[in-house]
Design a protein around this nucleic acid. Structure first.
Length: 287
DNA sequence: AAGAGGCCCTGATAGC
DNA sequence: TGCTATCAGGGCCTCT
C-alpha cells in the first residue's frame, strides 16, 4: 500500500488514536513477516506507554516511554486498523466509529489498549516490525537512507554530485532509497510526468533545469498526495477502514494506452518495464 | 562500488 | 466454471 504520503496519513491517524495510551497486551498470530518477530517482541512492548508516533520515509516510528522505538514498515500490502471498544465508548459517552470492515484473514498482530485495539493486517507479509533499543539504534537504522524530498539536503548540488559517474536512469534513482527516501513506484512515474522528463533518461545527463524540476515536483506530488488524504493507491483506506473520500488522481500510473491528461498534448500513455517495475509515461510530452 | 536480478508472499484479474 | 499465467504499493540479498 504505502509510499511516503500513505504512511504519513497512517501516522496522523495513529497520533490521534493511540498516542499517550498504554499497550496492555500484544497478540501475535503470525510471527513470519518480512523479518521474523523475535520471541521477546510482546514482552518488550507490554505495559509501555506510546509517547509519540513519528515517520521517516515509508517507516512508522512508534516511540515508547522508555525511549525505545518500534518501527513499522507496511511492505506492499500492510494495513493498520483501529477497532474501538464499543462498550467502553458508550460508557464514556464518546462516539464510536461504525465497525470498519476488518479483513477476515491475515490479521497478524494486535495491540490491545483500554478502549480499542490496533490490528496489523498484511496478506503478503512483506511488512515488518523491528524494535530499537534506543535513539542511537534508531538513527543507525536510517544512516544509509537518502534525504526525503522535503529535506534541504535534496538540492541541486546533491543531485548533480550523486548522479555523477553513475549509469542508472532517472526513474530507477527515484526508487532508490539510498538516493531519496519515500518515493515509490507510483509517485516516481507521476513526478517524471509532471517534470516532462522521460523515465529512461540517463540521470547523469540531466541538465540543471531538469534537476530543479525533479526537486520541485517531488515535493509537490508528495505534499499534494498527503493533503488529499493519501489518495492515489488502489484500495487505500485509512485506519478506520474508510475509503469514501479518497480519489485516484494519477496522471500516468495505471493509464496504459489512455490519453495524456496534459491539455496541450495528444499523446498516449505507454507502459514499460524498468528494473523489473512498471513505469508509465507519455512518449509525446516526456522527453 | 554500482547495478542487475532473484526472491520473499498472497490475491486479483485476464485469458483461455 | 475453472484452470494457468501475470502482475501488484517494497526492499533485502547475492552475484558480477
Amino acid at each position: 500500500m504505502p509510499e511516503l504520503p500513505e504512511v504519513e496519513i497512517v501516522r496522523q491517524s495513529l497520533t490521534k488514536n493511540i498516542k499517550g495510551k498504554k499497550i496492555n497486551k500484544i497478540l501475535v498470530r503470525n510471527r513470519n513477516l518480512r523479518f521474523k518477530l523475535k520471541p521477546s517482541f510482546e514482552e518488550k512492548l507490554k505495559n509501555k506507554i506510546i509517547t509519540n508516533i513519528d515517520r521517516f520515509s515509508k517507516y512508522l516510528i512508534i516511540e515508547l516511554e522508555n525511549k525505545s522505538y518500534c518501527i513499522v514498515h507496511l511492505g506492499m500490502s500492510g494495513t493498520i486498523h483501529i477497532i474501538k471498544n464499543k462498550k467502553k465508548s458508550l460508557f464514556t459517552n464518546t462516539s464510536f466509529y461504525n465497525s470498519p470492515k476488518l479483513p477476515k484473514k491475515h490479521n497478524h498482530i494486535e495491540f490491545i489498549f483500554d478502549d480499542m485495539k490496533l490490528i496489523y493486517n498484511d496478506p503478503r507479509r512483506f511488512g515488518f516490525f523491528q524494535l530499537m533499543r534506543n535513539i542511537d539504534e534508531l538513527n543507525k537504522k536510517f544512516d544509509n537512507f537518502g534525504p526525503e524530498p522535503f529535506s534541504k539536503k535534496f538540492n541541486l548540488e546533491y543531485l548533480k554530485s550523486y548522479f555523477k559517474k553513475k549509469k542508472k536512469d532517472i526513474k530507477s534513482f527515484l526508487l532508490d532509497q539510498k538516493f531519496v527516501s519515500g518515493i515509490g513506484n507510483i509517485y516516481a512515474s507521476e513526478i517524471l510526468f509532471l517534470s516532462k522528463i522521460h523515465p529512461q533518461s540517463s540521470a547523469k545527463n540531466l541538465n540543471t533545469t531538469h534537476c530543479q524540476k525533479i526537486i520541485k515536483n517531488s515535493k509537490k506530488i508528495l505534499i499534494s498526495a498527503i493533503k488529499k488524504g493519501g489518495s492515489t493507491i488502489k484500495d487505500f483506506k485509512n485506519i478506520l477502514g474508510d475509503t469514501g473520500k479518497f480519489q485516484k488522481e494519477f496522471k500516468v500510473y495505471g493509464r496504459d494506452k489512455k490519453n495524456c491528461k496534459r491539455l496541450s498534448c495528444s499523446g498516449i500513455i505507454s507502459k514499460i518495464t524498468q528494473a523489473n517495475r512498471s513505469t508509465f509515461y507519455c512518449k509525446k510530452c516526456q522527453k
